[in-house]
């Protein structure tokens, strides 16, 4: 049995600068695993360990995601091998195109029982690749999973919705997206990172992707609200009193 985990690589938002014209400047930002995909990777690794399965990570993105540190990071988390498409034809794909690209690569892998996705990507957080991918593969989909129990042919999934916890059953293969609390990401050790360098990294050819379905017209940082920024050390004379006085005045 094979478990695939779909991993999005994004610029680290801690290092994204806002330019004077309010556009986002990514030039100083490293490529990282989108935060909540770490939890999906961990869930895949734990499921695989429990079922004697293997985990393949699949990532699709621009040429910039071909970063050796990042690839080792993915492979140091209980992932057996990586299939990556790093091509500028796959930069900033919408959910429809991302799903088509992922499906093209997943269809080349034998014996896939499950594809796991994260809760939503750090950039778009649209929570749409799971469902579009299921459509592209012709498989069932379940989102918001907080627990997964799999047999050879079915998965029983606990999903935490807005107002209820629903337990559902689907036949495999299936696409399941997981919430962050399904599994806390491991912190890879030196040994894991060294071993990761020896694992298979398959830089795959870019698949044909469908035309964009969403046109981005503008992407600008909001005007920063004017705040007083009156900050004092707790130990400074009168700091707490001034803070409390301001608090009382604001009530």
């Amino acid at each position: 049995m094979k478990i695939v985990v779909a991993v999005k690589v994004v610029p680290d938002d801690q290092d994204i600068q806002v330019a004077a014209n309010r556009e986002l400047d990514y030039s100083k930002a490293h490529q990282i695993i989108s935060t909540y995909d770490l939890n999906a990777i961990e869930a895949a690794a734990q499921l695989a360990a429990a079922h004697g399965a293997t985990v393949t990570a699949v990532a699709v993105g621009s040429a910039a995601i071909d970063d050796s540190k990042l690839k080792k990071n993915i492979l140091s988390r209980g992932v057996d091998d990586l299939v990556m498409v790093a091509d500028d034809s796959c930069a900033n794909l919408d959910a429809h195109a991302t799903a088509a690209a992922l499906a093209a690569k997943i269809n080349e892998i034998d014996d896939v029982a499950l594809v796991l996705c994260g809760d939503g990507s750090a950039d778009n957080y649209a929570q749409q690749v799971d469902v579009q991918l299921a459509c592209a593969l012709g498989w069932p989909v379940v989102n918001a999973a907080t627990n997964i129990e799999a047999t050879d042919s079915t998965a029983t999934v606990k999903r935490t919705l807005e107002d209820e916890v629903e337990t559902v059953e689907v036949s495999l293969p299936a696409v399941i997206s997981v919430t962050p609390d399904i599994a806390i990401p491991r912190i890879p050790g030196m040994k894991d990172i060294l071993a990761a360098g020896k694992k298979p990294m398959n830089m795959a050819a870019a698949p044909e992707v469908p035309a964009e379905t969403i046109e981005v017209i503008e992407c600008l940082a909001p005007e920063a609200a004017d705040r007083l920024g009156n900050v004092a050390e707790a130990s400074a004379e009168g700091a707490i009193d001034n803070f409390v006085a301001a608090l009382k005045a604001a009530l």
Partner: peptide, 23 residues
């Protein structure tokens, strides 16, 4: 924007050759 309807809307979008513009 509920979890369930994100799936229904997503399947409908896929059917229409579209992507959902969310939130």
């Amino acid at each position: 924007p509920t979890r369930r309807l994100k799936i229904v809307a997503g399947r409908l979008a896929a059917h229409l050759g579209a992507s959902v513009i969310t939130d």
